[in-house]
């Protein structure tokens, strides 16, 4: 009895040592957390601040040693020149036309395929799914040269070869520098990291309650109707998350874009050439002048994903937490 009273005292008395220790622990934890997060936020935001700070400063501010972060003269010339050298409106159009459309195609088709893997029993499912995962491991460089050659002389099932043989003409169809080079692989579930998307969607659909589909089946829905009208509307967040990942990976991709569309550079590709292309405005020997313009170009290129991120940010962060990736 005595013991219990003592325990109660120690537990509920705010001046007891235990509570004090807890409080010290809590405060030190908070301080540690704030210090850590402030430091790491600085590392993450530093390049962005640096871009903004450089993009708007005038050429005179570069040599002014009293200017570190805040420029004395705000100018838009860097932005304007970077805009022209990037060929921004065209690059943005190609990015949208080639990459973003492909990203949506990829998400649509991988959701479909992922559902097939999640809910249907068929022979060879295990091994096929393992192959789907295996496609992620194979670096793009392994398959890109044959694909490049195939795309520059496009042929499905030797139809073109047969056509050439019969007619004797030497017509060659090239789908390089056309959207087909991006859309076709995406449409057939072989876009950028498609295997990963198939995996994610499979995990998601596997975790959906089976009762939904059973009810739909009893009501006479076929499997496709069930997928499009019952499963997809319930997969809103994971579709959003998947689309964002897909868009971002296509948008930031350099390798495929230079290989398949070197004549129609997308924004990321244009950015990689900017330090040379800016030569139409400033002499290429002056590193400092080039630098602030390249920073302005970086700012222009990250602007679209940044805007997108601010719009969908809340849903996105919730989505990845509840996406069922864990399974």
């Amino acid at each position: 009895m005595q013991n219990i009273k003592e325990m109660k005292n120690t537990l509920f008395n705010p001046h007891s040592k235990l509570v004090a220790a807890r409080r010290v622990q809590h405060i030190s934890m908070t301080v540690f957390r704030i210090a850590l997060f402030v430091g790491l936020s600085y590392v993450i935001l530093y390049p962005l601040l640096y871009m903004v700070s450089n993009a708007f400063r005038s050429d005179a501010d570069i040599l002014d040693s009293s200017v570190i972060w805040v420029p004395k003269h705000y100018v838009f010339t860097n932005i304007k020149q970077a805009f022209v050298s990037l060929d921004y409106s065209n690059s943005l159009w190609y990015t949208f036309y080639y990459n973003i459309v492909a990203a949506f195609l990829q998400v649509a088709i991988t959701a479909f395929v992922g559902y097939g893997f999640a809910r249907f029993e068929f022979r060879g499912r295990g091994i096929l799914f393992a192959i789907a995962l295996f496609t992620i491991i194979v670096p793009a460089q392994t398959t890109i040269i044959p694909m490049f050659i195939n795309f520059s002389n496009f042929d499905v099932l030797w139809i073109m070869k047969l056509y050439r043989l019969i007619t004797g003409s030497d017509t060659v169809i090239s789908i390089l520098n056309t959207p087909a080079a991006f859309w076709l692989p995406a449409m057939f579930g072989m876009g950028i990291r498609s295997g990963l998307f198939i995996y994610i969607f499979r995990q998601f659909f596997r975790n959906m309650p089976k009762e939904l589909e059973e009810a739909a089946m009893i009501d006479g829905c076929g499997p496709y109707y069930t997928f499009f009208h019952i499963m997809l509307p319930n997969a809103g967040t994971i579709l959003l998350t998947g689309s964002i990942f897909s868009m971002v990976w296509y948008y930031n991709d350099y390798y495929l874009n230079t290989m398949f569309a070197d004549k129609h550079p997308t924004l990321t590709v244009s950015l990689s050439h900017l330090s040379m292309a800016i030569g139409e405005f400033v002499s290429l020997s002056d590193q400092q002048l080039i630098k602030i313009r390249v920073q302005a170009g970086c700012l222009l290129v990250i602007l679209p994903p940044l805007i997108l991120y601010f719009i969908v940010q809340r849903k996105f962060t919730q989505g990845i937490e509840r996406s069922g990736i864990v399974g």
Binding site: V113, G116, L128, T135, P146, F188, G189, M190
Partner: peptide
């Protein structure tokens, strides 16, 4: 039929190129 598009893609854009 659900995984058919992927199977075609696997053949055309993975197995053949590899």
């Amino acid at each position: 039929t659900f995984i058919l598009p992927w199977l075609i893609g696997l053949l055309m854009f993975f197995i053949v190129p590899i």
